[in-house]
Amino acid sequence: MTAELAATEARRATRLPGWLVILWRNRKCRIGLVMLAGFVLVGLLAPGLAPYEPRDDSFDGSLPPGAGHWLGTTARGEDVLSQLIYGARISLVVGLAAGALSTVIALVVGLTSGYLGGLVDEILSFFTNLALVVPVLPLMITLAAYSPVKGLWLIVAVISVTGWAYGARIKRAQIISLRTRDYVTAAKFAGDSTARIIMKEIMPNMTSLVVVGFMGACLGAIGGEAGLAFLGLGDPASVSWGAMLNQANNGGAMLTGQWAWLVAPGLAFAGLMIALTLVNFGVDALSNPHLRED
């Protein structure tokens, strides 16, 4: 039975959408959802929550955490807490956008090569395998360092271009098993076109797999952005957690006793990653009904 059917079953008991009920019932996933909602709220309400502008460097530099500045100030005199709050926006936007983009690339490549097979599959699989074995971090650094344009969307593009291969592989395997089902043969005999068969007959049976892939891609993208920003290759115009870590490192936060400047973005980053991982436990239950009985 697929996740979609089980979702229909679960819907009977409550008015909430079935998939949400299944996610919510898993304790790990529930914690993850609450944490994720917290991060999203902080990102959305950043202008209201942050005590100062993140780029406002009018304060004394290198203040320790205290009453005026809960997490102290940077070497340049910016408020660390405000930077932390605004940083949530960047991580979430990059995570969502790059996650979505690499999922789309993975879907197109995976579905095409899996359904058509033959020579097309050979060629696309070659590129997928190539993308899988190329070391991702050096490639990202090279792309980001030598790109003529800078900015947030460059980061999104670099992460998507380097992160689609694994998802494509999984989706190809899934469609190879789905395309030989009797109902696909039946659709061919009903005169449906290949595009319609893929979109209407096969895709609805892969939604849970696509969601899992998207969550994984988000996770990778957030990590990728932090890595690039830490190396100083991020978007210079925006404040992200990775950029904060970079500046804390360059500004000698450890030497001046600015522990909060270094620890806070690291913790926030770890927290977001944990939230997404916990949610994924619930998504697993969505795609595998057997896991729901625990």
Partner: peptide, 17 residues
């Protein structure tokens, strides 16, 4: 002009349609 009746009625209908 040529149609099929499949062996397994559980596999021959798309579960989501």
């Amino acid at each position: 002009h040529v149609q099929i009746v499949f062996q397994d009625p559980f596999a021959a209908l798309n579960p989501t349609r």
